[in-house]
Structures are given as structure tokens and as C-alpha cells.
Write a protein that binds this DNA or RNA. Structure first.
Lengths: 135, 135
DNA sequence: CGATAACTTGACGTTTACGTCAACGTCAAC
DNA sequence: GTTGACGTTGACGTAAACGTCAAGTTATCG
């Protein structure tokens, strides 16, 4: 009934990051793996944390923000002011994410239009001087 | 019939950035405003460029990527290989953006769930030891 | 036992995107 | 004419997120 564990290179390979990055996250207080001697041993919970870190990064959170969210989440279960603060942070981030999604939609639309234009001008080649609007 | 122009502080205020940032974008080859003596004069086209720069940043493009896209867009009208490259870059970025939107959706969903939990535990207070699942 | 591989802890270097002076130019207002 | 307000060009500083050695430790294989 031994719990499943991982070493640092396994995690690095699984998530396609460097071991240096993983140690850096630990330096920043985002991970606290157990040790066997001086070597780091990661359990499933550590692995989940790492996944959360990486997803946080993908949506534009800084490591500091991720750490704050971890800390608040840990504290939020029995401290009401912390819990309120947690909710506020989440709401604020939600607004940022929604705004970002709007930007992304706009850009995707424009990409589609531009690609349409490109392929058209590839088809009827040789006109060479499309009027470039305003950019 | 003089064209509408702006100076650097006007643009800085309008877009809530510093003049330093605007000059930095020029250093990086993203803007080329006219000059009146040594002072910079921005026209509507410069202003649109600045808007594009800022939107590019908001969706996670580096200044270098933005510059490349500008350059490719400029060249793409009469150079077919450039145009193909342009399309490839746009397609790649589109995939990144779609993946990012997926991440954002997941996080927004979780934020909603967490907020629900928070408000519930605020209502029926005093149980103090919610089982924190896996985080 | 020695070699090799994998891991460890510093320590310093790097890139991006500006911030922050310093020192100077210029133009209108007093 | 000088005093601000605003603008300019360097030059150096900074924070985030690692990369890149260097030098030592531990485990394992033959």
C-alpha cells in the first residue's frame, strides 16, 4: 500500500520542464517535497500542485500570485477575512480572464480574415499591389 | 484639412502607459513617429499601431513577436514565401490562443465552484474543518 | 573498489520590458 | 532673461523566471 511517488526528473519529463524550474518553484515556496536523504521525493499531492502551478502560468499568473492563492486557499477554511479576500482575488482575476478572452476572440477573428485575404491573393497571383488599408 | 496628431504624453494618458514605454517601443522598431524638431509627433496610423502593440501584449505576445508580425504583414503583400510564413505563424498562434482559452475556461469553472463553496461555508459557519480534498 | 549516472546546493548569467535618474534642449509665460 | 513645463537622449537599475556552470554527494553497476 505504498503511495505512488516520483523523482524530479520524472516530473520534469512528464511536464516537459527542466529540473531547474521545479527546484526554483520550491525555492519560491510553491512546493515542499519530502526528502530521502537529500533527494527530493514527490507524492501525488506534490504532482497536483505542480500541475496547478503550470496551469496558473499558462493563464498568465506570476509565481507570486500562485503562491498567494495557495496560501489563501490553505487558510481559507477556518479564517473568514482570509476567505473574503480569497473571493475578491478570484473575482478580480475572473474579470481579467474574461477581458483576455475578449482580446483573444478579436485576434482570432482578425487572423481568420487575414488568412482569407492571404489565400485569395495567392490564388489570383500577380496583382502585387494590394491596398494595405490602415494595417 | 490637417491630419489629427498626438504628442507622447497624450498617447501615454489615453492608453494608461508611461512615455518611457512608448519610447521603448520605438527603440524596438515598433513605432516610427514623425518629428517636429526633436519632438515626436504621432498620427492616427501610429496610434493604431500602438493599440495593436498593446493588444498583442495582452494576449501574451512578446514585443519581438509583434515586430515580426508587423514586418511580415508589411512584406506579405508582394512576396509569396513571406506570405506563407505569415500564414504559418498565424496558425501556430491561433492554436496557442485556443489552448489558452481552454485553460481559462477550466479556471473560470473552478473559480465558480470554489466561490460557491466559500459562500456556503460562510453561511453555515463554525464547522471550521472542511476536508480539503486534494487541493 | 572505481567509474558513472543522477542528484544536490550555491552562485552567477540572461532575457524581457520597462523604471529611474542625469543632463540637456526648447518654448511660452512672467 | 529666467523660470517652469515638457521633451529629448543616454546610461544604469530592476524584477521575474529561469539557464548555466561549478563542485560536491549518493547510489549503482561491474
Amino acid at each position: 500500500m505504498g503511495e505512488q511517488v516520483f523523482n524530479i526528473t520524472e516530473l520534469a519529463q512528464e511536464f516537459d520542464i527542466t529540473t531547474r524550474a521545479i527546484r526554483f518553484y520550491e525555492d519560491q515556496g510553491l512546493l515542499e517535497p519530502a526528502r530521502a536523504g537529500q533527494r527530493r521525493i514527490y507524492n501525488r499531492r506534490d504532482r497536483v500542485r505542480l500541475m496547478l502551478i503550470l496551469r496558473g502560468k499558462r493563464i498568465g499568473l506570476s509565481l507570486q500570485e500562485i503562491r498567494e492563492l495557495f496560501a489563501l486557499y490553505d487558510a481559507a477554511h477556518d479564517d473568514e477575512p482570509q476567505l473574503q479576500e480569497f473571493i475578491r482575488i478570484l473575482a478580480r482575476k475572473e474579470q481579467q480572464l474574461l477581458a483576455q478572452m475578449e482580446d483573444i476572440k478579436v485576434v482570432l477573428t482578425e487572423i481568420g480574415q487575414l488568412r482569407g485575404q492571404c489565400e485569395k491573393s495567392l490564388g489570383k497571383r500577380g496583382n502585387g499591389h494590394n491596398q494595405a488599408k490602415e494595417l
